[in-house]
Amino acid sequence: MAGYSESKDDYLKRLARIEGQVRGIRRMVDEDVYCIDILTQVAAATKALQAVSLGLLEDHIGHCVVGAARESDEAAEAKVHEASAAIARLVRA
């Protein structure tokens, strides 16, 4: 079971809204909307995706990392390393 399973419907709703935002941005570019207005929408979509990422990360730590810690030190260490790598990717993005 995925760590986000209990929040899956919420994530799907948020992602659908983000998908709509991105379609709106595409439409704005197609209609030659002012650059700053498009950048404002890109920033909003980016922030929304970051919020999803942080939620998924929190779910991963609360479910997958904690579950691995209950199994063994080696499993916990692997999950912590995996989470750290994911955090590094998020920070670079």
Rank of each mutant, 00 (worst) to 15 (best):
V52R: 00
H63C: 12
Y4L: 15
I87V: 14
G3W: 02
G67Q: 07
T40A: 15
T46C: 12
G67S: 05
I87Q: 01
A83F: 11
L57D: 04
E74N: 08
A86L: 08
A75M: 09
D59E: 12
D32G: 09
R23S: 02
M28R: 02
R23H: 02
E19W: 06
V29G: 00
L12F: 03
D59S: 10
R27G: 02
Q41H: 09
E6M: 13
L15H: 07
Q21F: 04
V29D: 00
R23W: 03
L12D: 01
E82I: 09
R17E: 06
Q41E: 13
A86T: 12
G24K: 01
A44E: 10
K47Y: 12
G20K: 02
G62F: 09
A85L: 14
G55H: 06
D30F: 08
D32S: 13
L49Q: 06
S72P: 00
E82D: 15
R17L: 07
Y4W: 14
D59Q: 09
A93P: 03
R89V: 13
L12Q: 02
A45C: 10
A88D: 15
E77Y: 11
I38F: 01
I38Q: 00
E74Y: 06
R23G: 02
K47G: 04
D10Q: 10
R26A: 07
I18F: 00
R89M: 11
I36M: 13
S53T: 13
K8Q: 15
G20S: 09
R89N: 11
T40P: 08
L15E: 03
D30L: 14
M28A: 01
M28W: 00
C35L: 12
H81G: 04
L49S: 01
A86D: 11
E31R: 14
R92P: 01
V52G: 00
I38S: 01
E31L: 14
D30Y: 10
K79Q: 09
A85K: 15
R14V: 07
V66R: 09
D59R: 08
A85T: 14
S5T: 13
A76N: 02
H60V: 00
K47C: 09
V52T: 04
D10M: 14
K79Y: 02
C35V: 06
D59T: 03
Y11H: 06
A83S: 15
V65P: 01
D10N: 12
A68F: 00
V91F: 10
L39I: 05
S84F: 02
